[in-house]
Every structure is written in structure tokens, then in C-alpha cells.
């Protein structure tokens, strides 16, 4: 019996780690996607869709006879809601709710030691939890983006959908917005994972990040480069003109924005992975 575990559990190596990674992602996904835990994030994800649909329906009802609403106008409305509401509030708080809890939630339910006692490198654990959170948040808000996008065809009618998507700019725009959504989840996700892991009281850094992204339009150019909003705003394919909204005057080029976000997320994740090696179990406070 003694040797049994050595026979069936392969010796440490990349194959084993990959298997552990997928197993943990699966377990975490099941935990995060089921039950009431997902409800706040789900509400945040669906609310803008409801708003866009309502707007579409109202416009359609109030249509003067003979008016033909243009899809391009509706795209502008979408872009506005997307930047001012979806990115700024929904994705932000959705990611906070999901990623802050990846480690803090386990500490609060006093079950983190089960993970730490598994024969899994802690770096693998960080990566697995992050991927699970990313999949959850990414899927939720891709849902928001796609459903919200569909709402823009309500005023003009869904017969516009095919032509606009296939022959017009529709597909490219939608794909860009979905891409931005994933990048946002990646950036905010990395930040909140690290915050939830490193800080005992994650609300302070969260409030700080919220305030930082909020005052972003007033920041000097150099500091602007240190905010997720800056890069996300640069990527928006449709210009948005709303006063005091965190869109950049001087957008970063696309490769810089995407690369910058990727690098930033990687750096934050790296920090989290480095710090978790010395993390101690302390269920005492809270």
C-alpha cells in the first residue's frame, strides 16, 4: 500500500502539472459558477443588456412614421454604454466579486489549507484559480457584450443584422468589443486576484483602484499610462464623446495597448505567484 501512491500519481513534471491545472480549473469553475455566489456578477452582467434593450424598444416605439433609424447611430449608443457603464462599473465590480474571492474566499471559509496541502505547486494553484476566474468573468461579460450588441438592431429591425454583420463593419466591431472585454477581465482580474491574496482587507485597495480609474481623465499623461482604463479606452473602435468620461485624449496605439495590458497582467500575476510561496495560513482574524 505504501508504494501505491507513487505508482498511480506520476512523478512531478510538466505532464502532471498540466493535469493538476485542468483539474483545479474544473473544480473551481464548478464552485464559482454554481449557487448564489455568481448572482451579483450575473446581475451586473445582465443589467446593461436590459438597459440597451429597453432603449432599443423605446426608440422603436417612438419612431415617427417614415423615419429609418440607422444602425450606426445605435452603435454609438452601444459604445457609450459599453465604455461608461460596462467597463467602468460592471466589469470592474464583476471582476472584483469574482477574483477577490479566489483566495480571500478560501481563507474566509477556512479551506485554503486543503489547497496548500495538495501536492501541487502553489504557482500552479495561482494560475489555475486565475484561469477559472478569467473563464467565469470572460464568459459572463462576453454574454453582456454580445447580447447588448444584439439590442442595437432592435430599432432598425433584425433584418439589418445579417447585412451589418457580414457586409458592414458589424462583425469587426463586435469582435473588437469582445476582445476588449476579455482584456479588461484579464487586467482587472490579475489586479483583484493579487489584492485578494496579498491584502487582509481588500476593500481599501479596491476603493483606491476605483477612485484611481475614476479620476483618470484628470491625471497627467504619465500617470494615465498606469491605468487599465487608459489602454481599454484606446482600443475602443467607435469614438465616444461624453464629458468627464474616462476616454483618452491621446490614445495609445493598439499594439501598445494590448501589449501593455498583457504585460501588466503578467507582471501582477507574477507578483502573486511569487508571494504565494511564502503565504501562511492564518484564519485568525476576520
Amino acid at each position: 500500500m505504501l508504494a501505491e501512491s507513487e505508482v498511480t500519481l506520476a512523478s512531478p513534471g510538466w505532464r502532471l502539472r498540466a493535469r493538476q491545472l485542468t483539474a483545479i480549473v474544473r473544480i473551481e469553475l464548478r464552485q464559482r459558477l454554481t449557487g448564489l455566489r455568481i448572482l451579483p456578477a450575473l446581475l451586473l452582467a445582465l443589467a446593461p443588456v436590459g438597459l440597451l434593450m429597453l432603449a432599443g424598444i423605446l426608440i422603436r416605439i417612438n419612431l415617427a412614421p417614415g423615419d429609418t433609424p440607422s444602425v450606426a447611430e445605435a452603435v454609438k449608443v452601444f459604445a457609450e454604454v459599453y465604455h461608461t457603464l460596462v467597463l467602468r462599473f460592471c466589469v470592474f465590480f464583476g471582476c472584483a466579486a469574482i477574483f477577490l474571492m479566489l483566495f480571500r474566499g478560501d481563507v474566509m471559509s477556512r479551506s485554503l489549507h486543503y489547497w496548500f496541502m495538495s501536492p501541487v505547486r502553489r504557482e500552479v494553484l495561482v494560475l489555475a484559480k486565475f484561469l477559472a476566474g478569467l473563464a467565469t468573468a470572460g464568459l459572463l461579460f462576453t454574454g453582456t457584450t454580445v447580447l447588448g450588441w444584439l439590442a442595437i438592431y432592435i430599432p432598425a429591425g433584425f433584418d439589418q443584422l445579417g447585412p451589418h454583420m457580414l457586409h458592414g463593419p458589424g462583425l469587426r466591431l463586435l469582435a473588437t468589443y469582445v476582445g476588449i472585454t476579455w482584456l479588461a477581465c484579464l487586467g482587472y482580474g490579475a489586479v483583484f486576484l493579487a489584492v485578494g491574496q496579498l491584502f487582509r482587507n481588500p476593500i481599501l485597495p479596491t476603493a483606491f483602484v476605483l477612485a484611481w480609474e475614476g479620476i483618470h481623465p484628470f491625471l497627467p499623461p504619465l500617470l494615465k499610462k498606469l491605468s487599465v482604463t487608459h489602454y481599454l479606452g484606446s482600443l475602443g473602435p467607435v469614438p465616444v464623446e461624453v464629458p468627464l468620461i474616462s476616454l483618452v485624449a491621446e490614445p495609445a496605439p493598439v499594439p501598445v495597448a494590448v501589449g501593455g495590458l498583457l504585460l501588466f497582467s503578467l507582471a501582477v500575476l507574477g507578483l502573486a505567484a511569487w508571494r504565494i510561496r511564502r503565504m501562511e495560513i492564518d484564519y485568525g482574524s476576520d
Binding site: 438597459l51 457609450e80 454604454v81 462599473f89 476593500i203
Partner: peptide
Amino acid sequence: QLFLLGMLTVPTGFARAVNEIL
């Protein structure tokens, strides 16, 4: 705490957006 922060900020964002587009 996260809920409280959300309740004090998210509805403001929503209200802005609703007022803008509706």
C-alpha cells in the same frame, strides 16, 4: 464592504447611462 461600495457607485453610473440614452 464590496457590496456597499458597489451600491454607492454602480447605481450612479447606471443613472447617468439611463439618463443619457433613454
